[in-house]
Simulated assay, not measured.
Amino acid sequence: MSDRLAAILAEAVPRVCPAAVSLIAVDGSVVAAAAAGELVRYADARGGLAAERPPACRDSIFDLASVSKLFTTVVLLSLAEEGLLDLDEPVAARLPGTDPRITPRRLLTHTAGLPPTRRVDLELPGADAGARMAAMVRTPITHPVGGPYLYSDVGMVMAGRVAELAGGAALDVLVRARVTDVLGLPDTGYRPDGRRARIAATEWKPERPGPGCVRGEVHDETAYALGGVAGHAGLFATAGDLLAFGEALRLGGGPLLRPESVAEMTRDQGAEGAPFRHGLGVRIGDPAAVGPLAGAYGHSGFTGTSLVVDPARRLTVVLLTNAVHPVRGRDGIRELRHAVAAHAAGLAR
């Protein structure tokens, strides 16, 4: 479906990414779908070809990377709806020792003053995931609290931990109970055991156990060090599942959230210093992802993924790739996102 979308992906594979799947929906109906490339193309960082190179399909599974942040946000907002937390309460009430000015709202808008990242795997070699999480949530602030905007995976890890303490369950359990089971998303979750044959490979990481490039475990080093489940990264999904999640948000949140919660999530929260407007966990008008879809919201992921929701045009746009396979730093993912978004804009007219 959609020769033009198929051509856009074919032009990018394998130069930008070895595999790509995209879905575009208008008014909830898929009007364009395409898959291109190979889930595993390379055997190592030098570009040696893998012995088996399964094709990418519409039901292939990709590491979402930072698109996972949207799911953490929905979990937190659902807990807030139930009165289990307040977006403006100090997280220190649940995480003793943290700066009392840090709130869930500041974590979700990246204005908590926390650093962009922290490599607890390198700081605490041999420690278990619990010890590393304890260290992460004790990360001291390094920038002004309240802004300007500073993108922080540390903050979203802390947000995920706050959700666990407020919700009384591990984050993967909360995501399953409050998002994926509610929407019926069978292929979305952390640590996708047993589905390796459908998963796109990511980067060559010789420090990890097992041969070849990473496949079936989270690419992000911090999420991996935390056991594969974290607030900033770790989820895997198919394009169809991610489209259904985006459609739920586009239509006002049901059955995940109340419309007023989605309205707050997608409202400009006034974070200064970002190259886009920022809602709660979502970027609004991010030039790196939305292309000509000005005003659309969503998030992109380091592995080469993105979800863009444009209520004004009745659009939901999913692009899943493994642009970090076999190494990070490939050129062209921004241009690919823009090309898909431009095609989607044309379909919505």
Score class of each variant (00 low, 15 high):
residue 283 R to T: 05
residue 272 E to F: 15
residue 314 R to Y: 00
residue 79 L to Q: 15
residue 75 V to F: 00
residue 138 R to Q: 03
residue 88 D to S: 13
residue 26 V to F: 14
residue 191 R to N: 14
residue 229 V to T: 15
residue 64 L to C: 11
residue 250 R to N: 06
residue 163 A to E: 07
residue 19 A to R: 09
residue 22 S to K: 09
residue 134 A to V: 13
residue 143 H to N: 11
residue 324 V to C: 11
residue 348 A to N: 10
residue 276 F to A: 02
residue 192 P to F: 15
residue 338 H to P: 12
residue 245 F to T: 03
residue 113 G to Y: 10
residue 11 E to V: 05
residue 24 I to N: 15
residue 21 V to E: 07
residue 52 E to D: 07
residue 126 G to S: 06
residue 206 P to V: 07
residue 115 P to G: 08
residue 22 S to V: 01
residue 27 D to F: 07
residue 196 R to P: 01
residue 347 L to S: 01
residue 234 G to Y: 13
residue 185 L to N: 11
residue 252 G to V: 15
residue 266 T to Y: 14
residue 268 D to K: 15
residue 319 L to V: 08
residue 21 V to Q: 08
residue 227 G to N: 10
residue 114 L to M: 15
residue 268 D to P: 09
residue 37 G to M: 14
residue 56 A to W: 01
residue 28 G to S: 06
residue 6 A to Q: 14
residue 1 M to E: 09
residue 181 D to E: 13
residue 250 R to A: 13
residue 247 E to M: 12
residue 127 A to G: 11
residue 139 T to G: 14
residue 305 T to G: 11
residue 235 L to R: 10
residue 195 R to T: 10
residue 115 P to M: 15
residue 301 G to V: 15
residue 312 A to L: 13
residue 175 V to D: 00
residue 70 L to C: 02
residue 67 V to Q: 14
residue 70 L to H: 04
residue 131 A to H: 08
residue 251 L to C: 08
residue 212 G to S: 06
residue 309 V to E: 11
residue 248 A to R: 13
residue 97 G to I: 04
residue 168 G to E: 02
residue 247 E to N: 05
residue 286 D to W: 12
residue 344 A to Q: 07
residue 135 A to P: 02
residue 330 R to H: 14
residue 266 T to W: 11
residue 199 I to E: 04
residue 77 L to S: 09
residue 253 G to I: 13
residue 44 D to F: 06
residue 129 A to N: 12
residue 71 F to V: 13
residue 126 G to V: 06
residue 255 P to E: 12
residue 308 V to C: 08
residue 90 P to S: 09
residue 305 T to V: 12
residue 208 R to V: 13
residue 261 S to P: 07
residue 124 L to V: 02
residue 228 G to M: 12
residue 183 L to K: 01
residue 241 D to H: 02
residue 138 R to V: 00
residue 84 L to S: 08
residue 304 G to C: 05
residue 285 G to Y: 00
residue 228 G to F: 15
residue 314 R to W: 02
residue 40 V to S: 14
residue 312 A to M: 06
residue 2 S to N: 03
residue 87 L to G: 14
residue 219 H to C: 04
residue 54 P to W: 10
residue 298 G to F: 04
residue 265 M to L: 05
residue 142 T to R: 10
residue 145 V to H: 10
residue 183 L to P: 08
residue 48 G to Y: 14
residue 280 L to Y: 09
residue 300 S to R: 14
residue 140 P to A: 12
residue 347 L to I: 04
residue 276 F to P: 06
residue 84 L to W: 15
residue 193 D to M: 13
residue 109 T to S: 12
residue 113 G to V: 02
residue 72 T to F: 06
residue 153 D to E: 05
residue 208 R to W: 09
residue 230 A to P: 03
